[in-house]
Nucleic acid binder design. Structure first.
Lengths: 95, 95
DNA sequence: CTAGACTAGTCTATAAAACAGAGTAATCTG
DNA sequence: CAGATTACTCTGTTTTATAGACTAGTCTAG
């Protein structure tokens, strides 16, 4: 069970990055429904874990960080979703 | 996204209860791989939320609490697993 | 019958994590 | 240039998780 993926905010980040290759800080803030401060902290954790990649550039002379999932991050998420599915198989109710 | 199900320990509890109708405190301690104190706290949260049911009885003159999933708890878990699956559909990698 | 060990927890203090909001740096707008 | 905006980072507070001490009762042995 992946501790890093047991978080509303971090799952929101990953969900967004699964849908779109690269996402900006502000796009992620919207996706994860949280404040900038909190988002920054969660992003740092995901970067440290090698789940996402950070690229700091300037767009129109303004700083802009953008992020994307690494193969490792993608793999981890898939494994996580699978584990959930495995648990679900233990119950008969399937509807 | 269900906050209550974003926890290693609580997922361990739910997993065990999906597999076996009723489970004792000690069986859950083993399933969730945690200490008694911690387990007690998490069980209390799940009981408060109406996800599990607690039954305190005596077995061989000793106190024994046992727990089982409520329909509500089961439903919530299934919904949670489904949400994960939905996120997974956003990526092309399916292997 | 009582000392020591065990079961089945609960309670409490500490450690870790999440979070919000203040602060920083730069740009743009009137 | 004053004030507003973007794009964050840093720090202090609050919330959550966790371990371990503690309680209550039972069982075993001497």
């Amino acid at each position: 069970m992946d501790e890093l993926l047991l978080s509303k905010v971090r799952l929101g980040i990953v969900a967004e990055l699964l849908a779109s290759e690269w996402a900006s800080f502000s796009a992620l803030a919207q996706a994860a429904q949280t404040t900038a401060g909190n988002l920054g902290a969660h992003l740092a954790k995901l970067v440290d874990a090698g789940y996402i990649e950070e690229e700091k550039t300037f767009v129109d002379r303004r700083p802009q960080s953008r992020y994307r999932l690494t193969p490792r991050g993608r793999k981890s998420f898939i494994a996580h979703a699978r584990e959930m599915q495995q648990l679900l198989l233990k119950t008969e109710v399937r509807s």
